[in-house]
Design a binder for these strands. Structure first.
Lengths: 222, 222
DNA sequence: ATTATCTATAGATCTATAGATAATGC
DNA sequence: ATTATCTATAGATCTATAGATAATGC
């Protein structure tokens, strides 16, 4: 019940399994977020965890399965939160939703999760951003986030009945690009701004992004 | 002087060298744009060109050198065009540049090049977008495009004297994210919109993006 | 006489599997 | 008695180099 000095006070096998699995996923998440699927080997992940590389195959059939597991572990949580936030806003706004209201629900809910979730959630966000435009990542984005996006687009259409559907989808494409670029945390904005902005400062982003994009939508042609 | 049927009417060695080099760069550009640095082997590139894989090492020291050469081949051209366009607009606008004017010079000049440049230029744009948030790509982005971005930001500051410098850099971060996402041509917008939008339709993007972003800048806090 | 391309191959690395060992579980 | 981890290893692939061959260049 204390285990103060003991380095390896292991509990049940189920616990040990869960613990190792989590360590593998955490390590893979960080490595994939920096170097992508092909830039990481199973040996890299094993070394980061401190186990034999062959243990990777005990838990995952192959590298792509590990990659998909990293994505799936947190995707449902953020997708669910955003669906909820959009539904809540839709109910609240009734017949007259605004673009800004819909975007705050869509964007701020996501950023809040990373702000509050700590380093591991930030790593996952960066992993998502990093792989979103790869063949393997695009499939996962479609699979996990299409319902969220379509719910947002439905609200935007209601808020902007005079704009064409295509124009609204292009606007969404700009929004998601901006968000992905934020989540990617490449460090470019830090260098360009001479230290005025920090890639990790999602609070500063949250302060601006939804209203910035909302103004853009109102300026769409069509 | 005719060489109608001959499959290999080779000219001087300099010509042959230039021709092979170009084929290698074209093939690498397309492959890297889809799979990134680590997702492509020198054998893949050689196979696409139809030569022995060892020929890659005759022309390039290693894979990273090839990668950098693909980036550099076209980077100076688009950077130069955009610098020119921004300088021209700055001269024309004098003391009162507008955000929209600066963004049209920055964004439309780039999109025009890909629209007019054909498939190979489109591939390069997608390559840039694909690798912009990788460790290897970020270095190249900084190296080749910082002067262009800083020129844009200088114009934006002049157009928006009441906004903080940090706010303007965040706005730029949203703009570049949207542009990168467009250039990446992941096909996601095609699927989401049920075919209303096409990833390759840069004309449609050009019609919207600069004014969309300009409206966003005017809505920035600070 | 020089240069573009190919053949042959060494050495490193990576994925994946089979089977052994060392823990926990009744 | 089952399960987590490790050892050993096969097979595939990849980078990189040395040296041979086949073109162009004076």
């Amino acid at each position: 019940m204390d285990g103060s000095t003991a380095k390896r006070v292991r509990r049940t096998k189920a616990e040990q399994r869960a613990e190792t699995l989590e360590q593998i996923l955490d390590a893979a998440e960080l490595l994939f977020s920096k170097n992508g699927l092909h830039g990481v080997t199973l040996g890299d992940v094993a070394a980061a965890v401190g186990v034999q590389r062959t243990l990777m195959h005990y838990y995952f059939a192959d590298k792509l399965s590990l990659f998909e597991a990293v994505f799936a572990r947190r995707a449902a949580i953020t997708a669910g939160r955003r669906i909820e936030a959009l539904d809540r806003y839709a109910a609240e706004a009734g017949d007259s939703p605004t673009v800004a209201g819909a975007l705050h629900a869509f964007l701020d809910t996501d950023l809040d999760l990373y702000i509050q979730g700590g380093e591991l959630w930030m790593n996952w966000a960066t992993f998502c951003a990093r792989v979103s435009n790869t063949p393997e990542g695009a499939v996962l984005m479609d699979e996990h986030f299409d319902p969220v996006v379509l719910k947002l687009v439905a609200l935007l259409k209601k808020a902007l009945p005079e704009k064409s559907e295509a124009a609204i989808f292009w606007g969404y494409n700009f929004v998601t690009g901006a968000l992905i670029n934020v989540l990617a945390r490449s460090g470019r904005i830090d260098r360009l701004s001479g230290g005025l902005c920090h890639s990790d400062d999602f609070e500063a982003v949250k302060k601006q992004i939804a209203d910035f994009m909302a103004a853009g939508f109102l300026a769409l042609k069509d």
